[in-house]
């Protein structure tokens, strides 16, 4: 049973002669609990694909369904609710709010939920403990390392237990050792049932995925397995 369905999704930017087709009728499905890596060169359209899957970039055509919800048929506010309930984001450059402490950054997705302050704090501390950041909860983002920022970003992405995790180059700014730690965390999350879509340039990171989608010039060219992906990129 497919949990995520991308049905002939296209995305074009600009009009007329300046029209650029970032995604061209991409179709694929993802099962619940699957770990899928999206690989491709810079400008291939993989980040556009991820933003569409993040309910933040309306496709020009095609349908995007998650758990039978036609995401882009929802209005703007419902899309925001969908992001909060279904998705967790991990960004390459962490995207932590600089004036909020680590624990407050993790609590961000819970801000607009009906949970009490105590419950929010409990959930955030749980998530931080899970990524090994419990002892740095009170620090500000500029007081922690890049790896710790990424772990904070992962804690924020999982704090509300979303069924889908979208990761955009999660190890892009990290050294090899830290990247391994982060990927181990993602693999553990996947083992616990979280569906993960990860954009990456790294074949080593793609090796953690069960399946690799390869994008070139906006087209899904094949779906090699992780072992083949290493040869493709």
């Amino acid at each position: 049973m497919s949990f995520i369905i991308c049905d002939t999704i296209s995305k074009t930017y600009g009009q007329g002669d300046a029209c650029v087709k970032a995604i061209d009728e991409i179709t694929f499905t993802v099962r619940s609990g699957e770990f899928v890596a999206v690989m491709g060169e810079s400008g291939s359209g993989k980040s556009t694909l991820l933003s569409i899957m993040g309910a933040m970039n309306t496709p020009t055509s095609g349908r995007y369904l998650v758990d039978d919800i036609d995401v882009y048929a929802l209005d703007g506010e419902k899309q925001a609710d969908f992001r909060r309930e279904y998705l967790g984001f991990i960004f390459q450059s962490f995207h932590l709010v600089p004036y909020l402490s680590v624990v407050e950054n993790v609590m961000l997705p819970l801000t607009t939920t009906g949970h009490s302050r105590r419950v929010k704090e409990f959930m955030a501390h749980e998530a931080l403990a899970w990524v090994g950041m419990a002892d740095k909860a009170k620090r500000l983002p500029n007081q922690i390392s890049g790896g710790e920022m990424e772990r904070t970003a992962i804690a924020r992405a999982i704090v509300n237990n979303p069924p889908v995790l979208l990761a955009d180059e999660p190890t892009g700014n990290l050294d090899t050792r830290t990247s391994k730690t982060i990927m181990t965390l993602l693999a553990r999350l996947n083992q616990q049932g979280t569906t993960i879509m990860m954009v990456t340039h790294s074949t080593a990171c793609a090796g953690y995925a069960q399946r690799v989608l390869k994008v070139r010039d906006g087209l899904l060219i094949d779906t090699p397995n992780p072992a083949e992906a290493a040869a493709c990129v």
Binding site: G54, M56, G76, E77, A80, D81, R83, R84, E85, L87, F89, H95, L96, V97, L108, P109, T111, T112, R156
Partner: peptide, 16 residues
């Protein structure tokens, strides 16, 4: 702008 992008990405509505 970026901060607002983060808010929106993690599920803040426009009204929030």
């Amino acid at each position: 702008t970026s901060e607002i992008g983060i808010f929106r990405a993690v599920g803040f509505r426009r009204s929030h």
